[in-house]
Nucleic acid binder design. Sequence first.
RNA 1: GGCUACGUAGCUCAGUCGGUUAGAGCACAGCAUUCAUAAUGCUGGGGUCGGUGGUUCAAGUCCACCCGUAGCUACCA
Length: 668
Amino acid sequence: MGRRILVTSALPYANGAIHLGHLLEHIQTDIWVRYQKLRGNQCIYVCADDTHGAGTMLKAEEEGVSPEVFIERIRKEHIEDFKGFLIEHDNFHTTHSEETRELSELIYNKLNDRGLIFIKKIERLYDPERQMFLADRFVKGQCPRCGSDDQYGDNCDLCGATYDATDLKNPRSLLSGATPELKASEHYFFDLAQYTDMLKSWTTSGAVQPEVANKLAEWLDSGLRAWDISRDAPYFGFLIPGTTDKYFYVWMDAPIGYMASFKHYIKSGNDLAFDDFWQVDSDAELHHFIGKDIVNFHALFWPAVLEGAGFRKPTRIHAHGFITVDGTKMSKSRGTFINAATYLEYLNPEYLRYYYATKLNGTIDDMDINFSDFVQRVNSDLVGKIVNIASRCAGFISKQFGGELAPALHDEALWQKFVDAKDSVANLYEAGDTSKAVREITALADLANQYIAQHEPWKTIKDPDKHSDVQLVCSQGINLFRSLAIYLQPILPAMAEAAERFLNVERFRWDDVDAPLLAHRINKYQPLFTRMDKKQVDKLIEASREDDVSGGETADEGEDAIISIEDFAKIHLKVAEIVAAETVDGADKLLRLTLDLGDEQRQVFAGIKSAYEADELVGRLAVIVANLAPREMRFGTSEGMVLAAGPGDADIFLLSPDAGAVPGMDIH
RNA sequence: GGCUACGUAGCUCAGUCGGUUAGAGCACAGCAUUCAUAAUGCUGGGGUCGGUGGUUCAAGUCCACCCGUAGCUACCA
């Protein structure tokens, strides 16, 4: 009997669009789920929007609609975005649902009955104008340690200090600008410390990755405190039973949303028993895929709540790292904060699924996206290696043999190598190490291409006596391709479907790799993938940059934030003389400049060819960023940046110092 | 600031218990090839393993400190 598995991805917060970061998690989960389904296991994948909290309430208010209307609109967008990336949630619900309310109340009542809930009066910052308590992110003021202004209520960006919002000097409410006052309020606490021993053994039992267990040990060893699970009105959420103005904190009901989504899935006509998956001795598996930033909620608070309420605990928490682009955080101003919907306007979703798959390894390391690497990997692996096998064999089979595959294999040993990879690829999928799985699969693709090159069907076809050899070789090639398509199905479901049509077969199953297709009629080959042009990616980045300008998002990244004098001092500007300038073969926009900085010469590539002739630049002075990291470019290394104004094309204007400046002078 | 991770070829990443000359793919160069969507095959160049110091017969691997990146730090979600 197969395994029974319930899988979740972290719930996206219902105040913004799905972006590349969400997709890393959902694609990773989807690959794992599709693999389980392909194996014939019963695997249910549920998710939901995380809707509660002051965040959605205020955002809805900004748009002048009710929170309910606002979150439902977001949910529809999220569902569309995920569908566009072929992510097959069996149910995508909302935490603002009857199921979540019922289960939250049930769990709370059980915890309360067991004496795990207590009430304590605490003092929090209160906005007297808006008449509401303020979460840390809605308060700014001066850091109590270094005194820098404009810092949030939890920690200081500049000196790194952490503190309570009540410690801020000159605090102000971001909602009204008013000075917050301290106000006492009764909060409800969950007695987390009761479960310290349980959590110590659970976190080291293999339920979380070792590096995550290390991080959690820090919490466990320093002593768990009671967890504040209530928030005061006004709040968007569910009332705590027996109160009229205390709401469940969003992180209390968010994981309950996993249960609720599963419950709703059953209600929608699926014949499953809720208790089979959630009762304390359930033999079904429960897997949560999450980002490394929220491990404490999933691997401390959540298992303790489940334990306290008499439910089973998760089988495994799969934590992953974050996306960086060229080594740094996604950035709206650089156009690397890319939304799912924008991506889909320009590129095939399976390109991204494949690229992520080549890099996912089941650890919490961050994943760096490099767009030229992305283009190269997809083009050379998917189009050049894998799909090309089918493409180069199909013509012979359809033109010479009426679409009929040979009745026998030509190279049994080679075929067996493809069969033998099955368990190892399976284990890698199971462990979430899809990067190794892909490496094994592309190594097989290399063998297939070598095989075809060695047997040269395009030469054999000219010899009438060896006509049937061509059928043997190309049939072998197509069977090898079929194995690859099955192995890649979890990552590339649409490609696999197209391959099924080409091969004229039913839906792939994992065990199909055991036996080849022989004496079988296939259909005419249609290209499964087309090559990607870097220009499409450039357009996508450009479009994402525009999104930012028109979107008017609240600057939660601090993109255009005021910088300190220390930040400015990091930029070292110098006067430089352009001693040589020349065009670069093959480059449309670049000029290669040789700059004299007084004590050294540097080569800099500048994108100013559209506005300047090389000759007119020689001898003039320019302003250069002298400590910019050297950049490897296609035509060589660029060792700095020349400053210029203007929007681009013909309108580029180089900056120059007034008369008297000499090369090498510092600019302050 | 404290903590948890990470830093290896131009790029993206492997590298097991410390053990021979540090590997792969992409990119690049040369040759071959023309079935395939300019797709393939063969060969090759390319490394101060972030830095400094230490432990050891032996360090990419262990230790200390430093630099850089990311996350957490319980009311941001």
